[in-house]
């Protein structure tokens, strides 16, 4: 896929990092404001997709990127299950998904125990999954057109 014009590239340079940071904000504040892992992860994947669409598939090393996102996706779901299993070991009651960390004050950023950690794991999972699907489609097309 070829890149787009200089206008699109310049705007992408300016706006891409802001979109990425906004996705991280949505994920980290998931237990305080609307949003969370699913929405924030999709926004992060969107910032990468914007980069690939604007600069073309030659600019980024797509195959390396795809391997990385595939590994990240697999490890994110592993982290999710490990946190859930830690609740079983450390919660004291022996149930999956027990909130074993201290709850803290409601409304502060560091509160709600393991819920922010679950949010971060799901955000990584969603971002890496959507990016992997997009990159797989793109690489497939480049290989077929060759």
């Amino acid at each position: 896929m070829k890149g787009m014009t200089i206008i699109v590239k310049k705007v992408t340079e300016i706006i891409c990092g802001v979109i990425f940071l906004y996705g991280i904000y949505i994920i980290v504040h998931g237990h305080l404001t609307p949003g969370g892992g699913f929405a924030g992860g999709t926004i992060i994947a969107g910032s990468f997709i914007l980069l690939v669409l604007a600069f073309g598939s030659e600019f980024l090393a797509l195959k390396k990127e795809e391997t990385g996102s595939s590994i990240l996706e697999s490890s994110a779901i592993l982290i999710f299950i490990v946190i859930a299993a830690l609740g079983m070991l450390m919660g004291g009651v022996g149930i999956f998904f027990v909130n074993f960390l201290p709850k803290g004050t409601i409304g502060q950023l560091i509160s709600a125990g393991v819920i922010p950690l679950f949010n971060i794991a799901v955000g990584m999972e969603v971002a890496a999954a959507l990016l992997t699907i997009f990159l797989a489609l793109l690489i497939y097309r480049d290989e077929v057109l060759k």
């Binding site: 969370g36 299950i81 409601i106 509160s111 709600a112 679950f118």
Partner: peptide
Amino acid sequence: EGTGSANLVTGVIFDYRGYDTLGEA
């Protein structure tokens, strides 16, 4: 009070309905 999460939707998704989220992931 039970979940410590100010956003009740996230509290339900990740605490009461944790298995649902695991299934979605």
